[in-house]
Structures are given as C-alpha cells and as structure tokens.
C-alpha cells in the first residue's frame, strides 16, 4: 500500500514538473524561515566564540595593539621559551597543582562521606535530612566575594570567632594570623571550597545511592553486617562508577585551581608567594606589564593545551577501566 502511494505521488510530480524534493535549493526554500532565524545565531556564535581563537596568534607575535594583524612582528616560540625559563612560572604551577590536588581530595572525601551519612538518616529522621540538605546546598549559590568576605571575618585576628574559640578552649595562647601565614593558605582555600560546595557535590552521590537495589541491604543485614559494614560493602561499591566518572571529569580541570578565592584572599603581600595560580599569573602578566599581552596569551594557551591533554588522557583511562567514556 505504501509503495503504491509513493509511486502515484511521484507520478504526479513527474507529470507536473521535474522537482527534486531532495535538492538543496528546494529544501532551503521550504526552510527559509529556519535558516533566516539561524543566521544571526551563527554570526553571534562565530564572533564571540570562534573569532577570539584568532587572537591566539598573539602568542607567536611581538604583539602591539596599535598595529594591524599584518604588521605584527612574528617571533615564533620566543614567549614560550620565556615562559618556561621564568622562575615565577614554576612557582605558580606548584601553587596551582598543590591547591588543585588539595581541593580535589578534600571535595571528594567530604562530599562522599556527607552523602553516605545523609543516606543513613531514614524513617523519622527524614524531615531532618531534608533540612540539612537544603542548608548545605545554599553556600553554592553565594558569590565568591561573599564567601571570601565571610571567611576573612571568621578567621580575623581581632574578633574572628575561630581565634576566640581556640583561645577560650586554651588551645593557643596568641591569636593566629590565619590570613597572613603562608602555611595555612592552601588549606584555607581547600576548606573554603568544601564549605561552599560539599552539599552541592553530594547531590549526585545521593542520586546514585537511590538506584542501589534495597534487597542488597536486606541480604547484607541477614549476613550480619552492621550499619557501617553495609555502608562499606553495599553503598560505596554501588556508587563506585559515579565516583570514578566524577574523578576523571575533575582531573581534567587540574590546572583550574580556581581564581577568585586566591585572588581575593591572597592579595595581601604575606601569602602572595603561595597564593598565585596560573590564572592570576596570566592576568597579572597579560595586563600588568606593557607588551605583556603576547606573553599572557602564551601562558593561557599553555594552560588550555595541557588541560585538554589531561582530559583526553583521563577519558582514555576511563575506557581502559571499563567505565563509561565521557567524550
């Protein structure tokens, strides 16, 4: 029946005019409205996302903003050579990697433990669980400016509540200058991140936990496993693949140790040595010195390339481990 219908239809078409319904212009005419709507989007996306990529050529030039593209002096890999011989570069790389790793480990451990414990609040404690969840997600929505303001208030020398508590408990004699001690800085950044995103990060684990078969818990209980035994042998393996995927995804951001916290909390000269990350380096060199644009662009490009390589590598590793690939 269907073939019959098609043949008669095409017969009619043949009789009238030889129109090819698959031809480019026929389709384009039919869809001209859709095409007209997409053109501005195409231009917009091209200008704001693709055009800046041309700016990456700056990294290979002695870029002078007042000259046109064709008058620029090409210098090859000079800026990259300068970058790799710059002692500051190694310092900011050390800071970036250190804070990245501290952030990664702290964020993972706290979010997983938090999700596991929340999951234990069942029965009559369900309402309490929901309140705790609601409160723990909230800091995620506050800006870094606000969060850094809160941290600096809490840790302040005069009147900061942490110092007051430590003194009244007799744990310390003199107040600690938290914001001015280099040894503390990475950990302050790490725990600030925990404060801001522990609850938010736990959402995904809680969602993964709900897909675990309840019968497994019953079976484990009959086999004599206690609460923590079930957590360790059922819940944790149940969310293993989620943990691995997230770990891989986050490992790709290893050079994104953050920018805002370090920039805001690390501005005082006492901790500058340990606070500057690669992003701050790009900003300060790029805009801070005359003719720094090209150097800053080179440093930014280095970061992008390394990030992409790490992400692809992690994705490969995920494939080898038999986990779902991301890309």
């Amino acid at each position: 029946m269907i073939t019959e219908k098609v043949s008669t239809e095409s017969d009619i078409v043949k009789q009238q005019k030889p129109i090819n319904r698959n031809s480019f212009w026929y389709k384009a005419d039919k869809q001209k409205e859709l095409i007209l709507i997409s053109i501005p989007f195409f231009i917009y996306i091209f200008i704001f996302s693709y055009l800046p990529l041309a700016g990456l050529t700056m990294a290979f030039q002695n870029y002078k903003p007042q000259k046109s593209f064709f008058d620029q002096e090409w210098v090859g890999l000079k800026h990259f050579k300068n970058l790799f011989t710059d002692p500051d570069f190694y310092r900011v790389m050390r800071n970036t990697l250190a804070m990245s790793i501290i952030n990664l480990v702290l964020a993972f451990v706290t979010a997983i433990v938090f999700a596991l414990l929340l999951n234990e609040l069942t029965g009559r404690l369900n309402g309490f669980k929901r309140i705790v969840q609601t409160i723990s997600y909230m800091p995620h929505f506050l800006s870094w400016i606000i969060v850094c303001g809160l941290v600096s208030t809490i840790l302040a020398m005069d009147g900061g509540i942490i110092n007051e508590i430590l003194i009244s408990l007799g744990l310390i004699k003199d107040k600690i200058h938290f914001m001015g001690t280099p040894e503390y800085f990475w950990w302050i950044v790490g725990f600030t991140n925990v404060w801001k995103s522990m609850g938010w990060n736990s959402i995904i684990y809680l969602a993964a936990i709900t897909s675990i078969d309840p019968a497994l818990y019953e079976a484990a209980a009959i086999d004599g496993y206690g609460r923590f035994g079930r957590m360790w042998h059922i819940t944790l393996p149940g969310i293993k693949s989620t943990i691995i995927i997230l770990l891989i995804l986050n490992a790709g951001w290893i050079l994104n140790a953050g920018f805002e916290v370090q920039y805001i909390l690390g501005t005082n000269g006492l901790v500058l040595d340990v606070s500057e990350t690669i992003d701050i380096f790009v900003l300060k060199r790029g805009f801070g010195r005359s003719g720094g644009f090209a150097f800053g662009t080179a440093a930014g490009m280095f970061k992008t390339v390394v990030s992409a390589a790490v992400l692809l590598l992690c994705n490969k590793i995920a494939g080898w481990l038999g986990e779902e690939k991301l890309v």
């Binding site: 480019f24 389709k27 384009a28 869809q31 859709l34 095409i35 997409s38 989007f41 195409f42 996306i45 200008i47 704001f48 996302s49 693709y50 055009l51 800046p52 990529l53 041309a54 700016g55 990456l56 700056m58 903003p65 790009v282 900003l283 790029g286 805009f287 644009f293 800053g296 662009t297 930014g300 490009m301 970061k303 992008t304 992409a308």
Partner: peptide, 29 residues
Amino acid sequence: KEFMFRRFLTVFMVMTMYLNAGLIPQYFL
C-alpha cells in the same frame, strides 16, 4: 529534525563549550 543545517549548527555550538581562547584574546575582541 528536518532542518538541513541542524547537525552543523549543533556541533558548531556545542564546540564552544570546549573552546576557550583565554582572557586576553577575549579582551581584545
């Protein structure tokens, strides 16, 4: 589904989530 540039435009747009020229080229743009 029948839009002829659908696939092209989708890829063109999704790519932007991974492309990043960095701060300084953005500033000059």
